[in-house]
Design a protein around this nucleic acid. Structure first.
Length: 594
DNA sequence: GTTAGGG
DNA sequence: CCCTAAC
């Protein structure tokens, strides 16, 4: 399990969310700390990102905390056992004086850095930084404890406490869960860890060379900011956002959340605002008041003064109920997206893409054949919450037939031919325009042919166990086909299917004469099954096609004409020739000449 | 090979 | 759509 340790101070579940300030360590079986890998860090970050802090919080194994580099040199002050919640923290803080001490410490550090750098420049010392660290490591005794610490470092530690140990009564709740820092350092056999693991803060050779004296972060390049970041936090960052970096570094340097967004000049450990304007509406608050440490995130302002302790309590309550606020909220805005976010985003995008592809391939024709949807006026049906939606049948819908149950999903503009059809329609309520329909059909026909329907037989036919062949897929009848069929029947007469096929379905290789016959049968059934005029249509939406009422009417006319009454199928009209011609008067205005 | 009709 | 019997 992991835990995040913060600068020698308390850990609220919400505070540990910051991957920069807090270091992640894993508690090994024997109780010692092992640095978390980058992936582990990421993992925890993600957890925290999602507000799943409880996973960390509830971890039984969390027994210790590790100070980050800022306080590496400080002695641990948290001494609270695991199972004593509510135990008041033993150490208290001394507010004001210690802040100054910390500032001194920062200056001290910077001074030392300067010296180190000078030393390096003259002597070519390659690893001056670690030398610096090692210098301080000398204060470790052989047990790896930190019994001897110079005063400044000590005061620095106390300063760290200021920020977070505002109220002992608040700290106890968190600290008690994490055990003592002393425990972390208690393993005599592993003093090396402090040197070798950079999860234990600073041992990754921080480069303070950029922190000499007063720092003007504004003038630094990203690369320099990275160095600065590393120098400040002891770890690398890949964040490219300058302002983020500057804020972070500034926070790290000043241990303050009150970072002006406009300027990042740090002088003597404090911010010096270039312009008096403080962007995030904080301009009214002095930032250089050495006696105050303000942690001003949204939504509350906190200061160290006694009168403001309630604020901290409020803040803690907020943390408990609402999750991350305070400093993190302010930083959140400029935080780079988390890995999980990116993954989820790309997941969604790819899912959308797949859906699109699938919907294209759902085309009945598709089987390795071209899925050029434009070429096929095919009814596309998908289930939408149990409701069947017909998305594309509009190609011939242009013939002026009302097509119920059509819910267009098509978002791009309609095809040209459809537009032409729609606007060129005579709206004789009965008969489609001969010429337009004819044109449209030819157009569609052509497209269908082009799209590879001819070769379609190869792919959509599969041999059966009986030795015959069987179509792989049902091919829904399009409105075009239905109309062709009707017209063909009217021309040649019902029953002369092979002739109709030759005449009207020559380009539809997948429609056999049997298919035509079957379809006609269905049409007959349909036309007689429902009450006249566009009424039954909408009720039978389960049908493979919602056939326009006009067509069904026509079918019925033809059927009656030929005495093809479904219930008592006498089959007299079999010799259709004369019958068809004789019925011409009925359809004089219709598509006779197909 | 077509057609009609049942499955 | 498939299958099959009957043309």
């Amino acid at each position: 399990m992991f835990m995040a340790a913060e600068d020698g101070s308390t850990l609220s579940p919400n505070q540990i969310a910051d991957p920069v300030v807090y270091k992640l360590v894993r508690v090994d079986g024997d109780g010692r700390f092992v640095p978390a890998t980058d992936d582990e860090v990421m993992e925890v970050e993600d957890l925290l990102e999602d507000g799943k802090n409880e996973k960390v919080e509830d971890a039984e194994q969390i027994v210790g905390c590790i100070p980050t580099e800022g306080t590496l040199f400080g002695k641990p002050h948290v001494e609270i056992s695991n199972d004593m919640p509510g135990l008041p923290q033993s150490e208290t803080f001394e507010a004001a004086g210690e802040y100054n001490a910390r500032l001194e410490y920062i200056e001290d550090v910077l001074q030392k850095v300067k010296q180190e750098e000078r030393l390096r420049l003259t002597c070519g010392l390659p690893n001056y930084a670690s030398a610096y660290v090692n210098r301080d490591r000398k204060s470790f005794d052989e047990d790896g404890r930190l019994p001897v610490i110079d005063e400044k470092l000590q005061s620095n530690l106390s300063l760290q406490e200021i920020t977070h140990s505002i109220s002992p009564s608040l700290n106890e709740n968190h600290v008690s869960k994490h055990g003592s820092l002393g425990d972390c350092l208690k393993h005599p056999d592993k003093p090396v860890e402090f040197e070798s693991s950079d999860a234990l803060c600073t041992t990754s050779n921080p480069d303070f060379s950029l922190l000499k004296g007063d720092v003007c972060l504004d003038n630094l390049s990203i690369r320099e900011l990275h160095e600065c970041f590393k120098a400040t936090f002891g770890r690398d960052t890949t964040v490219k956002d300058k302002s983020w970096l500057k804020r972070r570094i500034a926070m790290g340097l000043t241990h303050s959340c009150d970072i002006p967004a406009s300027s990042f000049i740090i002088k003597e450990g404090k911010f010096v605002e270039e312009s008096s304007q403080n962007v995030e509406g904080m301009s009214n608050f002095p930032t250089t008041d050495a006696l105050k440490i303000e942690c001003r995130g949204s939504p509350t302002t906190y200061s160290l003064e006694d009168k403001d302790h309630h604020h901290f309590e409020d803040m803690e309550l907020d943390h408990g109920s609402e999750g991350q606020h305070d400093e993190r909220a302010a930083v959140k805005r400029i935080r780079k997206p988390t890995r999980r976010y990116i993954e989820e985003l790309s997941e969604v995008e790819s899912r959308e893409y797949v859906q699109k592809v699938i919907s294209l391939n759902k085309n009945p024709i598709s089987d390795g054949v071209s899925t050029n949807s434009i070429a096929r006026p095919i009814k596309k049906v998908y289930s939408d919450g149990g409701r069947t939606v017909i998305t594309r049948l509009d190609s011939l819908g242009g013939s002026g037939f009302q097509v119920p149950c059509v819910s267009r999903v098509r978002r791009s503009r309609p095809r040209k031919d459809v537009v032409a059809l729609v606007f060129a329609l005579p709206d004789k309520d009965q008969n489609p325009s001969v010429t337009v329909t004819d044109e449209a059909e030819k157009n569609l026909e052509q497209k269908q042919t082009v799209s590879g329907n001819a070769s379609d037989d190869n792919t959509s036919v599969v041999p059966t166990s009986k030795g015959g062949v069987r179509r792989k897929h049902h091919r829904a009848w399009t409105l075009v086909e239905v109309i062709k069929l009707v017209e063909g029947v009217s021309k040649c007469g019902a029953g002369r299917w092979s002739e109709i096929k030759k005449l009207s379905f020559s380009s539809y290789s997948y429609r056999t004469s049997v298919d035509l016959k079957d379809k006609w049968r269905n049409l007959l059934k349909a036309s007689f099954a429902q009450t006249p005029v566009d009424e039954g249509i909408s009720s039978r939406k389960h049908a493979s096609i919602s056939i326009p009422a006009q067509i069904l009417l026509r079918v019925r006319e033809l059927a009656e004409m030929h005495a093809q009454i479904p219930p008592s199928n006498h089959g007299q009209g079999k010799l259709g020739g004369g019958g068809v011609n004789g019925s011409m008067h009925e359809m004089s205005s219709s598509a006779v000449c197909l």
